[in-house]
Design a protein around this nucleic acid. Structure first.
Lengths: 116, 116
DNA sequence: CTGTATCCTAAAAGATACTG
DNA sequence: CAGTATCTTTTAGGATACAG
């Protein structure tokens, strides 16, 4: 990803950055669905993601203020991730998009087959 | 992109495929905004995309039935891309997401700075 | 438990030249 | 004009080990 998105859309670029991340939306939805959730909990519920990528996604979403990271001074350490109020304003749009994708799954597959 | 998205979200995966493409959404919106549009027209209105990537995105969106490609038997050749009826059912959700991104641009930047 | 660091591979993006 | 082919660079993603 070297080149920049052009001016007209650049204001949406910060969002598009993690939208382009393969796992970001899935991670976000999992946190939203399951409420406050711990690192390993996420790691287990998304079996095919690696620790590294999961941690990257979590950091990015946290930095952008979409999710919140709470660290409890327990032993062993415990952290919980949850969606912030800011993140909640985004959720409906993400859900709408994912729902469209699910609802039109068959149609898309059919369209692809037409082009062999 | 080696690993698969997990079952719960795999139905949305075909859509996520091109959602993950850096340029797909921009190309889609440009076509939607400008009506039927030709290849070089797009190439010029999205200055920072390469011909190759543009052509890839166009083919992918065409294959999935989101946009339509019409070839006119003119000399020199002329093609026009436009959004299909199917694609139009997707547009509102993409627009909503892009709008959110634009509206919250400042907030995201501010959030990032807090984390230095 | 919750991550980070390192190293490696696969995939996407980009530049450029060329064809129908 | 509307792309495709080729080649190189860049970036994302993954495996694994290990640190606080």
């Amino acid at each position: 990803m070297a080149k920049k998105l052009d001016y007209e859309y650049c204001k949406a670029a910060p969002m598009l950055e993690w939208l382009g991340n393969k796992w970001a939306l899935v991670v976000l939805m999992k946190i939203s669905e399951n409420g406050p959730v711990r690192f390993n909990e996420l790691y287990r519920t998304i079996p095919s993601v690696s620790e590294k990528v999961l941690s990257q996604v979590l950091r990015q979403l946290t930095t952008d203020g979409i999710i919140r990271r709470e660290l409890f001074p327990d032993v062993p350490p415990r952290t919980e991730y949850s969606v912030t109020e800011f993140g909640k304003t985004l959720l409906p749009h993400v859900e709408a998009l994912l729902n469209w994708g699910r609802e039109n799954f068959e149609q898309i597959i059919k369209n692809r087959q037409k082009h062999y």
